[in-house]
């Protein structure tokens, strides 16, 4: 996945069974973002792999004051990349089991 400056990781073990998964997101490289996020912490949230859209969560983070609108696209892409990796691993685990 491209280094967007925003890191997204699993906030819990993924057993591959639940649709909803806890993720944790934080700014790792401030220079890659347009807004100023010097003292920002890590943001943990739940994401439904089947129903939800990464860009919508990113917009909610902007509306909650975590990010500037100008960084919504970057945040959305970072979440999308991690979600894609989680889904890919799940599919690989299932196909290996068959």
């Amino acid at each position: 996945a491209e280094d967007t400056g925003v890191r997204v990781e699993l906030a819990e073990e993924d057993d591959g069974k639940k649709d909803s998964i806890a993720l944790k997101l934080w700014v790792e490289d401030h220079k890659k973002l347009k807004g100023k996020y010097k003292e920002s912490g890590a943001i943990e949230f739940t994401f439904d792999l089947e129903k939800e859209v990464p860009e919508v969560v990113a917009q909610e983070m902007v509306e909650s004051g975590f990010f500037h609108e100008s960084d919504a696209k970057t945040v959305g892409k970072s979440i999308r990349d991690r979600v894609a990796l989680i889904k890919w691993r799940r599919e690989r685990t299932v196909s290996a089991a068959v």
């Binding site: 934080w26 890590a42 909650s64």
Partner: peptide
């Protein structure tokens, strides 16, 4: 560790905590 919670109008809960220690060293 100090955490804070922000609930978005759509109902999603965001829990804010310090960036994981290991990642700070990497920076």
């Amino acid at each position: 560790s100090a955490t804070a919670q922000v609930v978005h109008s759509a109902g999603r809960r965001f829990i804010v905590s310090p960036v994981p220690e290991a990642r700070l060293k990497e920076q």
